[in-house]
Amino acid sequence: MKLLSFVRDGQEALGILTEQGVVDIGRIGSKLDMMDAIAGGKDTLAELKRLIADTDPDTLSEACLEPSALEWGPCVPRPNKIICVGLNYRKHAEETNAPIPEYPILFNKFNNTLTGHLRTIAIPKATSRLDYEAELAVVIGRTAKDVPREEALQHVFGYACVNDLSARDLQMRTNQWLLGKSCDGFCPLGPYLVTADEAGNPNELAIKAIVNGEVRQSSNTSDMVFGVDEIVSYISQHMTLVPGDVILTGTPEGVVLGLPPERQVYLQHGDEVTIEIEKLGALTNRFVKE
C-alpha cells in the first residue's frame, strides 16, 4: 500500500494511492491521519483496505484526487525522531576518502527539516555548498528495544525516498555535522510511504539522484555497509525506537562533495532534484534562493 500526507483546507490529511487516483480517506468516513496509520500497523492497514473495498463506487470516485492537484506534505509528518546514518555506502566512503565505518555513524535532523514532494526549498543564505543525497528512509512501525538483527525488519512499517540535503561548508565547519544537516527544508520525504510488504527486500533496491534531468547518483542499497536490519537492530540497542521514527540510511556515490574540486558545482537557484528508488516512486523538489 502507498500512503501519503497532503494538505486539505489547511489541515494535514491522509491519502492512499489507488489505480483510480489518490483516495482522500477523510471523504469516505475515516478520521485517521498518517501517524495513526503507522501506529495502528497491520490492523489499521486492513481496516483501510476494507473501507476502500466497501465504499460505494460513486462515493469512492468523488473522494479520488489527481496526484498532480495535491499540495504534498512529508509522508511522515510528525516523527518522534529523525536518525541519520553517515558514510553507509562503500563507494561513497571511498569517493570522499573516508574509511569504511566499523559501526554505524549516527547523527540527527529535526522536524523543521521536513517537507514534501514538489515543495520548493530555499537555499539558505548561510551556505554556498548545498549538496543532494539520495537515501532510503526507513519508518518504524513497532516499538523496538534491543531487537536482534533477525527480527529487526518486523519492526519496520515501510519505506520512502528522502533527500538528505547537506550544506557542506556548514557541515565541515566543526567536527559535528548537525548544522549542515538541519536547516529548514533539508529533509524532503516522500512522495509515498510504501508499506514493507510492497517494498520487499530493502537491501536490494535501485536508487538514483537526478539533477536537472542528469543522473548524478545511480546505485543499489546492496552497497550499504550496514543493511536496514543491522541499522534498526544497532540503534535499538542504544535508544528505544517508536512508531513513526524515521531512519535515513546513507547515500551512495555521486554527490557533489565526491567530485574533483574543479567539477564541484553545488545546487543553485532554479535547480530541480529528483530522488528515485525502486518500488518507492520519485521525490522531486525545486530550489530557490532564500
Rank of each mutant, 00 (worst) to 15 (best):
Y103T: 12
I25C: 15
I16S: 06
S30M: 10
L106C: 00
D33Q: 13
I16P: 02
D33Y: 09
L136T: 03
G73M: 12
I28R: 05
Y89T: 00
I38K: 02
A13H: 04
C84H: 00
K109M: 01
L32C: 10
S128Y: 06
P57Y: 09
N97C: 09
G116Y: 01
T18Y: 04
L70K: 03
A13E: 08
H92I: 01
P99D: 08
D24Y: 08
N80K: 14
E94D: 10
E94T: 09
I38V: 11
L136A: 02
I82G: 01
R129D: 08
K81F: 04
G41T: 04
E71N: 15
S61F: 13
A134N: 01
T127D: 04
A126K: 11
A63W: 03
E12G: 12
A37W: 11
L45I: 15
L70N: 03
P74R: 07
F107P: 00
G73K: 10
Q11N: 13
I121M: 01
G40R: 07
E102K: 13
L60W: 07
G10F: 05
K81Q: 13
V22P: 05
K31L: 12
T44C: 13
D24T: 03
D56A: 11
D33M: 08
T55Q: 07
R50A: 15
N97D: 14
N108D: 08
A63N: 05
T120P: 06
I16G: 10
R78H: 15
A39E: 14
I82V: 11
N111T: 15
I38C: 06
G73S: 09
E71M: 13
L17V: 11
D54L: 12
D54W: 08
R8M: 08
D36M: 05
D54M: 09
D33N: 14
D36I: 05
L114N: 02
E95M: 03
D56G: 05
P124G: 03
R50Q: 15
Q20V: 09
L32S: 13
E135F: 04
P124W: 03
R27M: 14
C75M: 06
A39N: 13
T120R: 12
E102H: 07
T113P: 04
G73T: 06
A37F: 09
Q11P: 03
E12A: 14
Y89F: 07
P79N: 06
A98C: 07
P67G: 05
R8G: 05
E12M: 12
A13Q: 07
I100R: 01
D54T: 14
M35Y: 06
R8H: 11
P74N: 06
G10N: 03
C84A: 14
E66L: 10
N88P: 01
I83S: 01
Y103L: 14
K31R: 12
D24M: 04
R90T: 12
L65M: 14
A98S: 14
L106I: 07
R27H: 10
Q11F: 08
Y89I: 00
H92F: 00
A126N: 09
E66P: 09
G73Q: 10
V85L: 00
D131F: 01
G41R: 02
R90I: 11
E94A: 12
K49Y: 10
N108Y: 13
R78Q: 14
E95N: 04
E66W: 06
P124F: 03
S61E: 15
N97K: 12
K31D: 14
P99F: 02
A126F: 08
G29P: 04
R27S: 13
A53Q: 11
E133K: 00
Y103A: 10
I105P: 00
R129S: 15
I52T: 05
L14H: 04
